[in-house]
Design a protein around this nucleic acid. Sequence first.
DNA 1: GCGTGTTAAGATACAACATATCATTTTCCA
DNA 2: TGGAAAATGATATGTTGTATCTTAACACGC
Lengths: 152, 152
Amino acid sequence: MGKHNHHEHQGESLADAARANLEKSGEKWTDTRAAIFDALAGFSRPASAYDIAELVSAARGKRVAPNSVYRILDLFVANNLAMRVESANAYLANSHPGCAHDCIFLVCDTCGEATHIDDDPLSQQVRTVAKSQGFSSIRPVIEVRGICQKCS
Amino acid sequence: MGKHNHHEHQGESLADAARANLEKSGEKWTDTRAAIFDALAGFSRPASAYDIAELVSAARGKRVAPNSVYRILDLFVANNLAMRVESANAYLANSHPGCAHDCIFLVCDTCGEATHIDDDPLSQQVRTVAKSQGFSSIRPVIEVRGICQKCS
DNA sequence: GCGTGTTAAGATACAACATATCATTTTCCA
DNA sequence: TGGAAAATGATATGTTGTATCTTAACACGC
């Protein structure tokens, strides 16, 4: 108990899962949203809105303005298709959009790669501490900056 | 056991403690650094470098450039006189500069106030998770966004 | 006291991240 | 098919953070 399977997706399958999740919330899977999701999912490390704007603009031969990217990233985050890494001002695609967790990110200060961990008991403790201080609408931000194994 | 006293400082006493700690590291307590520490300590919520630059400039009748503020804030953070709240892009004075903890910040999305918690067992767990993934030079970032009691 | 090397701070410019506002296009349904 | 609503675009601007070079303050040996 306590464990469960994540359906890790990648490539087309991931985009399909993302699409399904977004549409389940009554939102549309438009061309622009698909292009932005593809760009985001194509990065191996957290990508800034401007990184994505640049890539999508080049790929489509048509400029996408940063504000559009932000709008769509906000939508993705709200619907759990993407996560924001606060300490990096950047975003990651969620590789298992179906299940909701508080995320823990391990971010390498050298190479910029981010590892995504779930540890529900741990994040639950953080929630509990916040609740005990009278906080509501709690959104934990648990990240670790450091040097990853590859870079050390 | 497990508990220990924090010497909470405020006002002049806090500045004195900060000065002592900085000088213990072989750094100087200059007028500019004192002014920036005072400004930082005077805010009741996390202050941005630009907030501080503005306040110090006004208080001294002489412009302090943001890059100087950043330099000095970096120095303060490195010497544990201040902490950076990553999810707010802002800084807080450390009210017990003598003792080093991983900090947990509870940040209210409504009023912007931040509560500073220490929970060493919890932050130790975060460190352990990161270490188990091969991370070194670990700096945990544990923050909670939400609505504080007063604002709810 | 006087040069000289070192550290601190200032000036300036710019890069990177984020949002506000209004206009245009697309969708979709009555 | 026409009109409301949603999505995207254009543009401007606000906010946060760094890079580079210059000037000022300080400290120490002579």
